[in-house]
Design a binder for these strands. Sequence first.
DNA 1: TTCGTCATGTAATGGGTTACATGATTAC
DNA 2: GTAATCATGTAACCCATTACATGACGAA
Lengths: 194, 194
Amino acid sequence: MMTASSLELAILGLLKEGPMHGYELRKRLSTTLGPLYVVSFGSLYPCLKRLKKAGMLREIEAEATRRRRRRVDSDAKPGKSRRARKVYEITPEGETFFFDQLEQGAVYDTDRFKLRLAFFRYLPRESRIGLMERRKAYLQEKLVEFKDSLQATKERIDAYTRSLTEHGMEAIEQDIRWLEGLIDQERAAGAGRG
Amino acid sequence: MMTASSLELAILGLLKEGPMHGYELRKRLSTTLGPLYVVSFGSLYPCLKRLKKAGMLREIEAEATRRRRRRVDSDAKPGKSRRARKVYEITPEGETFFFDQLEQGAVYDTDRFKLRLAFFRYLPRESRIGLMERRKAYLQEKLVEFKDSLQATKERIDAYTRSLTEHGMEAIEQDIRWLEGLIDQERAAGAGRG
DNA sequence: TTCGTCATGTAATGGGTTACATGATTAC
DNA sequence: GTAATCATGTAACCCATTACATGACGAA
């Protein structure tokens, strides 16, 4: 496993806060990680299996149910009155891998960058600043590409496509300003301590 | 074929301007459709095959090469001095399908909506306005979701996640303003003619 | 002669989605 | 009694990516 998928990264990050079972994990994805991240179970459970197989997390003994059961104990299989939950815990290898994935790698992927930022508290300040600077530089390059593209296609471009490109540029500029604000905050907080 | 993938839609839209071969199509995707849309050949060629099979486009006789060849004509296969290009043309069924896909369907998918907007010139003004209004309404709903999410997680939320959500809201607000501007333009242009 | 571009394709792989299967518990 | 929610999983399907295969042409 060289590079983690976004989902893998998200799961590992959430499990760092404490053990959880799949169903809960899914809810947390959309609450903790912004009201955007929705995953289907058909995606989540196989992913947990993969991570377990790779040694990134392990299953811990789960209490079969938190609520007491009412059913009579004449049941053949005692622990199965409620569908058993599987509670997962991140392993040391999982933690190492998670940190690597947070710190290393490209800043091209927007969703991926957002995900990393959501776990920034686990990184030292210098890494955070470095990552944000790299992202900012990337966005500035992209801005130039957009500008060149507008220039190149000049007059023969359709009005809607032009508007799309211009709006795309504004969005990137807003992103850059946002990053600059965050970087300034980090530096100020760092200086305040030094 | 109920719903077209983004790539399928993009190919059909570009072929409406005139017949083209695969390689050229790929270049046009990133130039005409903004400097964002990059597809691999391993994705493009199978997609062309699919569309052809579905009757959305057909292969037309291609001149094997535009540049004259220098090689002696003693060659066994005369038309193969240069790798033959396959030129594709959209069929009437393809056009019908394309219009349906532009007009119908959800406005949730951001990339998809942008793609449709890039082909807005093929839609009547009323359809364009309708689509943009629906997109705007959707974004406003989403804004409320974000606001609720921020409210709900209140103080116990991590600073980075909060910043992420706030920035996400600003981006949506900017999107809404952009749409409002475009809608105003459409209405003004429509009224000027009436 | 070698590199970049033109040009089309296949194969392996990965991973996400929907739909299906199962079944208990809680609230109305 | 029935709908919603809790809870985990599998199977079929779709499609995108990378890597590989093939090969000509033009320019340095």
